[in-house]
């Protein structure tokens, strides 16, 4: 399947930025969260449709990239990372799968409905896992930095005494 990267980027950008408004995100973060979401969506589409990854892996890698971008811009803009992550993962989240699954169950198509819901579940798990990986890496970096500073301070006081 041929993918039009430019149009995917533009539409995902506007969708993510509009979701930022829906979630009442601070004004100065809208553009960067739009870029983060769009990059994640383009990566997902390329992995899924051009390189033929399965949906779990494509979601996982896209979520890792989104979380990385969010943590970096959180440090750049001095905001909590959530402000970027929540609109950023919007293009990925399998809301469509959950809706389709529920509709199929309402239409008494139980087997297909359960399968769709379970797929949505594993996709969400992939996204959550990818985000957790990046968040944990940044937390470890932060804690080790704080520990180093504390050790330095202790050394300084010991030297002064």
């Amino acid at each position: 399947m041929e993918v039009n990267v430019l149009s995917a980027f533009v539409f995902a950008f506007f969708a993510t930025a509009a979701f930022g408004v829906l979630f009442q995100a601070p004004k100065k973060t809208l553009i960067s969260s739009g870029v983060i979401g769009a990059v994640g969506w383009v990566l997902f589409v390329l992995l899924r449709h051009q390189l033929g990854y399965n949906s779990f892996h494509a979601n996982f890698f896209a979520a890792v990239v989104i979380a990385l971008g969010s943590e970096l811009s959180a440090r750049l803009f001095r905001q909590p990372a959530t402000v970027f992550v929540i609109p950023g993962i919007i293009p990925l989240v399998p809301g469509l799968g959950m809706y389709q699954g529920m509709t199929q169950i309402i239409e008494k198509n139980y087997e297909l409905g359960t399968a769709t819901l379970l797929t949505a579940c594993t996709d969400s798990a992939a996204i959550a896992l990818g985000m957790m990986v990046m968040t944990s890496v940044f937390r470890v970096l932060k804690i080790s930095k704080e520990r180093k500073q504390r050790l330095q301070r202790l050394k300084n006081t010991a030297r002064n005494n």
Binding site: A15, F19, L22, I86, I89, I90, V93, P94, G95, L96, M98, Y99, A120, S124, A125, I127, A128, M131, M132
Partner: peptide
């Protein structure tokens, strides 16, 4: 449907 779907709530639950 996208603005009304609880995809983020679901992912946050898994987190």
């Amino acid at each position: 449907l996208m603005p009304f779907l609880p995809g983020v709530a679901f992912t946050n639950g898994l987190r």
